[in-house]
């Protein structure tokens, strides 16, 4: 008992760090996955995408940097899979300079690998990054091609078949934002959704999600909040399209370590209080 008491009272923060590292690593190595049922806010976005008629024009905006990749990438992947399976057209862009790399990553990892039959310029296009943050959304409202005169590869925008009938942001059937801050889903809602009555779907980090709940369901069709939201969307996607059962589980695989780490943190809170009361009694 005394050993435990002294251990808790003099607990080095490095032991806590090691505990968390193990709590994450072991389940990851063991591929410990957690089954999840889609919550209403996630299911509603899934259904909104399902309800779009084929060949709909959908913007997929990559508004996140490398620091939130683990949360945001699975969301972008799941959207790309869902949209292409439903034969929609994807217009990929980024409001964040650092988002451009993630856009490429989605094309390389998902579109080129899993959908070799899809044609660049017909089924998907890489518009790339443009500076201007929410101001860019404003400008796109007036003149889309004035801002994007070329695609991300430098090809003239008028030579790209799927850009033919685009003049303003209002020509799109839906905007999906994968984001982690400002500009992000909130700006898409304020500057595009509210103004042009374009349906907006959000997929953001757990921290951001907290601030976006008030916009659902009126201004926001649905929301994936953090890894959990992404994993729920994957569940919805796999149950409808079982072909993604092996490739489409990025977030679910990450949810195992997540759950274990959470339990470890709960334990730490309890231990912290035990040590506090033990220390107080000793005085």
């Amino acid at each position: 008992m005394n050993i435990l008491k002294n251990f808790l009272l003099q607990l080095d923060r490095r032991i806590i760090y090691a505990a968390i590292a193990l709590a994450v690593t072991i389940p990851l190595v063991l591929h410990f996955a957690v089954p999840l049922k889609p919550s209403p806010i996630v299911q509603s976005l899934f259904d909104a995408l399902e309800a779009l008629p084929p060949k709909s024009k959908v913007i997929l905006s990559f508004d996140y940097g490398p620091s939130t990749l683990p949360e945001n990438d699975p969301m972008a992947f799941a959207f790309a899979r869902h949209l292409l399976t439903r034969n929609h057209r994807i217009y990929m862009m980024a409001l964040w300079a650092t988002g451009a790399r993630n856009l490429d990553h989605t094309i390389e990892q998902v579109i080129e690998k899993e959908f070799p039959g899809k044609v660049y310029g017909v089924d998907y296009v890489k518009l790339g990054y443009k500076a201007g943050d929410e101001g860019l959304i404003n400008t796109l409202f007036k003149d889309f091609k004035g801002m994007y005169t070329t695609d991300g590869h430098g090809t003239n925008i008028n030579d790209i078949p799927m850009m033919k009938d685009i003049t303003t942001l209002e020509d799109f059937d839906m905007i999906l934002n994968v984001g982690s801050g400002r500009p992000g889903t909130k700006e898409w809602i304020q500057y595009a959704g509210d103004r042009g009555n374009i349906p907006i779907g959000g997929a953001v980090t757990a921290v951001e999600a907290l601030l976006l709940y008030p916009y659902y369901p009126r201004q926001l069709k649905g929301l994936l909040g953090g890894l959990q939201g992404a994993a729920e969307y994957e569940t919805a996607l796999i149950s409808k399209y079982p072909q993604f059962g092996t490739t489409g589980r990025q977030a679910q695989v990450y949810m195992g370590p997540q759950a274990v780490a959470h339990c470890v943190i709960l334990l730490l809170v309890i231990l912290g209080n035990v040590s506090y009361f033990l220390g107080r009694r000793r005085k």
Binding site: I265, L268, N273, Y276
Partner: peptide, 11 residues
């Protein structure tokens, strides 16, 4: 976050 949880969340 974990070390803050251990230290700061005390009654």
């Amino acid at each position: 976050v974990s070390s803050a949880a251990y230290r700061a969340f005390r009654a």
